[in-house]
């Protein structure tokens, strides 16, 4: 299926715009992050002094940063595992041939269209310590009130729930697409061979879905590590006592609130390395077992 270009320069010329955009908006800033991570800088870089690896040393020896790393890992695990399981379950239900299926699907995708700020605000209302709907229900039916966002453990759970909800639509779309690509004849064959719905799912559908699951795993991981800071900012601002201070939020705070550009650059380098490593491990292990094409 390989097609040939008439000469060797044409493909390069066609790629040039993409490369140029990437260079300006990706490679150059990345290179700059590496450079700045060796400086102590303030005022958007108007003033800076060279400090070598001091930023890294401080980060690696800071108990706050260690805590932030642990919080991030819990947050990412929560978002990926809970998010993918719920999305898959919902996608299976939405994939059934029932009346109004299209409307259900549309409604399920809706949360994804909201901006993180709006999603955060909605959950802020639900978790409101005095008049939130969730607070009201726990008070009404169980007789207690929870300080959802001001109690350290609950706050982390709260932001995970919000982050999962926010990304449900995205995951469901891909799972639905994946499910609809599962060939009916294989399922039929399995059924004729006497496999029940449970077995059909685990032995046929789930393996055939593995490229989608794998893709979503990576995307959710990236979302949990990089994309969730808007929600955190609206809901908890990293608190209480840094219980929801994930790495990306800590970075955002240092750069844009604390004016510590060198420190923030060092953190972005660490985060970059971390995600590269996680993705490589993922490709090496699970990636091999992914079935492409049916």
């Amino acid at each position: 299926m390989q097609s040939k270009f008439p000469n060797r320069w044409l493909p390069l010329i066609l790629l040039l715009p993409t490369i140029a955009v990437c260079a300006v908006f990706l490679y150059y800033p990345v290179a700059q992050s590496f450079e700045w991570s060796l400086y102590r800088a303030a005022f958007m870089g108007l003033k800076r002094i060279y400090v070598g690896f001091q930023n890294y040393v401080r980060l690696f020896t800071s108990s706050d940063y260690h805590k932030s790393l642990v919080v991030s890992l819990i947050f990412a695990a929560g978002v990926v595992v809970i998010g993918l399981s719920i999305s898959l379950a919902i996608a299976l239900l939405a994939n059934r041939k029932i009346r109004g299926a299209r409307i259900y699907r549309l409604l399920l995708i809706w949360p994804y269209a909201l901006s993180p700020a709006v999603a955060g605000t909605i959950w802020l209302f639900l978790f409101n310590p005095t008049s939130g709907v969730l607070t009201y229900f726990t008070d009404r039916f169980f007789g207690f009130r929870l300080d959802w966002l001001t109690n350290a453990n609950l706050a982390l759970l709260g932001v995970i729930v919000a982050a999962v909800w926010k990304n449900l639509g995205y995951n469901i779309v891909f799972f639905l697409a994946g499910l609809q690509n599962v060939p009916g004849e294989i399922l039929e064959a399995a059924r004729i061979d006497g496999a029940g719905p449970w077995k059909c799912f685990w032995k046929v559908t789930f393996p055939l879905l593995s490229p989608t699951t794998f893709f979503l795993f990576i995307m959710n991981l990236i979302y949990a590590f990089f994309g969730a800071f808007g929600l955190i900012d609206v809901m908890t601002k990293g608190g209480p006592v840094n219980a929801t201070n994930i790495l990306i939020y800590n970075l955002y705070r240092d750069a844009f609130q604390h004016n510590k550009w060198g420190m923030a650059s060092a953190q972005s380098v660490i985060l970059f390395v971390l995600v590269v490593v996680l993705t490589l491990i993922q490709f090496r292990t699970t990636g091999r077992r992914v079935h492409y094409g049916a």
């Binding site: 608190g239 209480p240 006592v241 609130q257 004016n259």
Partner: peptide, 20 residues
């Protein structure tokens, strides 16, 4: 204070810790 904003973050962390 040149690092007033950062100081605020740390003071608020401390207040939350005290309440907890």
């Amino acid at each position: 204070m040149g690092n007033f904003l950062e100081a605020r973050t740390f003071i608020e962390d401390a207040i939350e810790a005290i309440l907890a």
